[in-house]
Design a protein around this nucleic acid. Structure first.
Lengths: 226, 226
DNA sequence: AGTCGATGGATTGTTGACAATATAATTCCT
DNA sequence: AGGAATTATATTGTCAACAATCCATCGACT
């Protein structure tokens, strides 16, 4: 549960965060039908705020609601997951370009320091997929906010990343190629540091494209079933 | 008010649609602080469903809420409006490419028939900006759904277009270049008909880029103040 | 006179009870 | 016995009253 970073933290916000993390972490499985009263007792909530949170989550595409019929967690097919990566490719390419043009020098330094940190963690705990996934999220998060494009950051952080993370947890495969991904992150950060927006965009698109194809082959191999 | 296309139309849906159109049409001005009870009496609603709708609208970025302090319509600066077009450029480029690969022949025929219709309307009522705006929306709508990319269509139709339309109504400038825009639409549709995804993407990006620059110059001229 | 602090009013957040509807189990008919 | 219509139940949608919080006005102090 996140802290009360916002001054006042309403019950609906609490419900929203609880449900979102529960869905992302897989505590609520995709396709699962969930009753309102059950959720209330589970998270110590009342139905009013809960319903408000359900509305928000439906609006973000994390669950679907049929009137009077109940609410169930969204289940995304393998094809749709790959489509998600196609969207990420274009949007994060734009984010990288704008980040190269607009990030402050401090932000760039932080970004590269983050990558140093990731490198240490990968070397220490080899193949610790969990940290790799979080590190990857951290990197992309910084670039999204660094783009100074409010709506773009909102769409990436508020919509796409939660869905991608949901499948990361379920598949627990992060990317499966930690060193490769780190190297790609490094190159993107360098391009941003050199304020080369065009190159940053190109590298970011290629990076996400590679991740997509990685998942695609795993699915075709049958080693990944969704 | 839309029809009951969905089998059951709940009050919260009604509230959501009412508020959304009110915001888009400018009946609720950006930056305006609106009280819940006032909205209830205005749309003949009760506070429960209204609050659920407010949550959804906040989630979509059409209004901002501060706990216990009230809700106000979002006010987007000129810079942010231009950023919106940058996002559209990449996302709709992708949509056009995928539409070229996936639209059925019937859909392509419908798309081109739509353009014929637009041409007639433009010739008949020269400079009738309203229809031009709606026609433009129709065109882009068809391509978004034709991409067969669920999330992409959802983000375009559910998030971006409403914001863009909001400013269209306020500025009532549609694009200001109906014949030019129609010609660009034609070329995009032709590329889709020829199943040339790469070209469709290129043309769509250029089309939206032109629209963005058109707005940009108008802003710099001072003929557009937001 | 200007600024800081306290109190009143209004508005939002929350709660529990009531009404409407979809799913299901049951009964009746073919 | 199988299927269709029907009733019953449980779940969702809706409502109106209660509690908590913020904003503005007013007053006191520096």
């Amino acid at each position: 549960m996140p802290e009360a970073a916002t001054q006042t933290y309403t019950r609906a916000d609490e419900a929203f965060d609880c449900l979102q993390t529960a869905i992302v972490k897989g505590d609520l499985a995709p396709g699962e039908k969930i009753g309102e009263v059950e959720l209330c007792s589970r998270f110590n909530l009342t139905r009013g705020p809960l319903r408000e949170a359900l509305g928000r989550l439906e609006s973000r595409g994390l669950l679907v609601r049929r009137p009077h019929a109940g609410v169930k967690v969204v289940s995304v097919s393998a094809d749709e997951l790959l489509e998600l990566y196609r969207i990420r490719e274009t949007m994060e390419g734009l984010a990288a370009r704008q980040a190269a043009e607009r990030m402050t020098d401090e932000e760039v330094a932080d970004l590269q320091a983050t990558l140093d940190n990731h490198e240490k963690m990968i070397e220490q705990a080899q193949g610790q997929a969990y940290y790799q996934a979080e590190g990857d999220y951290d990197f992309h998060h910084r670039i999204a906010t660094g783009s100074r494009n409010t709506k773009l950051a909102q769409m990436l952080l508020g919509d796409l990343y939660y869905m991608v993370r949901m499948y990361r947890y379920r598949l627990s495969t992060s990317s499966g190629r930690p060193h490769m991904a780190l190297e790609e992150h490094r190159r993107i950060a360098d391009a941003i540091a050199q304020r080369d927006g065009e190159l940053a965009e190109f590298l970011m698109k290629r990076h996400i494209n590679a991740a997509r194809r990685n998942i695609e082959t795993k699915i075709h191999n049958g080693s990944l079933t969704i």
